[in-house]
Design a protein around this nucleic acid. Sequence first.
DNA 1: GAGTATACTGGAACCGGTTCCAAACAGCAA
DNA 2: TTGCTGTTTGGAACCGGTTCCAGTATACTC
Lengths: 368, 368
Amino acid sequence: MARKQEEAVQQEPATRWPVSTAKRATIRDVAREAGVGIGTVSRVLSGHAPVAPATRARVEAAMRKLGYRPSRAAQALPRRRTNAIAVVVPLFTRYFYVEVLRGIEQALAASAYALVIYSIERAADRDRAFEDLVESRRADGALVVSLTPDSSQVESLQSLNLPAVLIDSAHPALPSVLVDHERAAADATRHLIRLGHRHIALIDHQEDPVRLESTSGRAPGYRQALSEAGIPWRADYEVIADFTPEGGQTGLRSLLALPEPPTAVFVGSDTQALGVLEAAREAGLRIPGDLAVVGYNDVEVARYVGLTTMRVPMREMGRRGAELLLNALEQGQYDPAHICFQAELVVRRTCGPVSRRNDSSARQDGLQ
Amino acid sequence: MARKQEEAVQQEPATRWPVSTAKRATIRDVAREAGVGIGTVSRVLSGHAPVAPATRARVEAAMRKLGYRPSRAAQALPRRRTNAIAVVVPLFTRYFYVEVLRGIEQALAASAYALVIYSIERAADRDRAFEDLVESRRADGALVVSLTPDSSQVESLQSLNLPAVLIDSAHPALPSVLVDHERAAADATRHLIRLGHRHIALIDHQEDPVRLESTSGRAPGYRQALSEAGIPWRADYEVIADFTPEGGQTGLRSLLALPEPPTAVFVGSDTQALGVLEAAREAGLRIPGDLAVVGYNDVEVARYVGLTTMRVPMREMGRRGAELLLNALEQGQYDPAHICFQAELVVRRTCGPVSRRNDSSARQDGLQ
DNA sequence: GAGTATACTGGAACCGGTTCCAAACAGCAA
DNA sequence: TTGCTGTTTGGAACCGGTTCCAGTATACTC
């Protein structure tokens, strides 16, 4: 009888936080205390304009004495900038997005910008986030991950003078950082072909529910690599499955049930690939002997599981996107780049030559 | 010759974003357009005070015509609130923190609050974040994850009237949401004891670099369970390793090198437990036959790998913490709770009875 | 000693909202 | 018509900073 995760609430004497005690000191209080004008205090704060050393010292003493802290809200108004950057990101939990966020965070850490997150779980959120972002001018710029704003949204961004950079999505009017998914998929498939495989299946996931256009490009790349090699494309070798290990698992099961099961699978995400490995083990297949598997993304555990996969430079993408945006903010104009990263094949233990018969046809390393 | 992940930059005609074109319409513009006073426009916006239907319609028409959007920055000043909540979170990449964030996000999605993230990677960041948070009043409240503010920080939070809730850490003056790590560790160890194990090791990680006090509680719980069962504690069975799969791997290797290696390991994190499983496989140990493993957290892949582990309700913790904070903001006073969640043992495939000799002593399910 | 930079400084005006007070107006009873 | 509520409305004052202009003091030149 499993104990439920009950939560024990320990009551304590009610901790009222002082509802309206100490009023914060304002710039005028400091000015009075130091016997100077508010302009002088402001100058001391910003450091832009010259202030006599003696005066500066008096003002600083007053600030310290009063525990003065400038209010960002008040600064934001005349400065016309919030010193925050908004990130619009779908499906917070997926490794890919977390990694991108991490990269963004790294780039922003050095700057003075705060990070405001808009998480999108459903398509409806998407528009709400854009609304809020654009309307409220809560941030000075936006990073949009894996989401393509529609033209009216791009228009409002522009008319509001709100610079935005797309990461893993594209729009002609906005700078973007992307991965050549199509080429990556082709490379992954070519690797399997070079290993001698002719029966190569694809297990991919549906596009994210919030991403309106499907630009994944994995299927096109896969097909192209096949056709290059003169391998006929087979509809029954292309499986769409959930973006979960279980999805991959059922995906592979259905492939193994075919009259002529594949000897290799290219899986559109490592998350699914983990399930593929599990299903293979469960079916008694030896990897890579009986089945070769290539994943996609290079998730943290992939290295550990020994999964051969296409490494997508997720963190770098975030970093680069943030840098682009910071530049734009600084310069007042876009760096007009569309930066395209290439995924890199990482060979590990889950793929090898097609069978023991022709093991001389290729070796596991030095292939690229 | 592996192709490096080069980035191809495609130049495009410089996309200058209009530097200072359309000035945003202000509330005064709307008032003029609609032929009313600014007060009336404000009333229409807020909906608080009564406005004659005809007037409201005129104002709304004017707003639409001018594309008017109220500025949050301007609203924040007189309202004395920013409608944002700050989350101070260490080590963004760890699954635990991402899950907590996810829970927070869920709770906040319904509210009108934006989410501002302060990510802490080094101890120095911690104070900087608090400084910024407190000083600048960028948010109306704060959620602090796994970090214990020092007393001066708590003081400034209180003197500034900034409500804060701690998640996975505690302070007498602040509400908190935590897990009973000690009990959880004891439960995990007891489970192994009940399976008949007497040689039980602990592999744990150092405290997070940014968390000053070490309140993990895993070692104490482990030791307590041992002593309850009359099993002598052995220094060589307690290993501290990096918070990575590799850490777990080397941890287990060192345990296996002992003259009397353990038959079971309780690992302080699933991340490390994955490495433990790998090291066991590599050493030719059968799991759970030769080695029983219990992890900690119930990371996403744990289920999939079949890892028996203590489930920590990470998302719930985030959600609950955010709710506490939202309540505090709404009511102007703290819900004075210290909420304590219990971790739950999730039995999967990585632990079983001590050896084949006494396999009748316990069964894998129905143990709790 | 007058003339003129130069270095500081004070504070009004402003950013774009909210709030509140007083005024305008409508409706109704006396 | 007058007096008295009650509803709407206008706009000044304010939130807490920044900016800029004008003014004062000091220094330097001739």
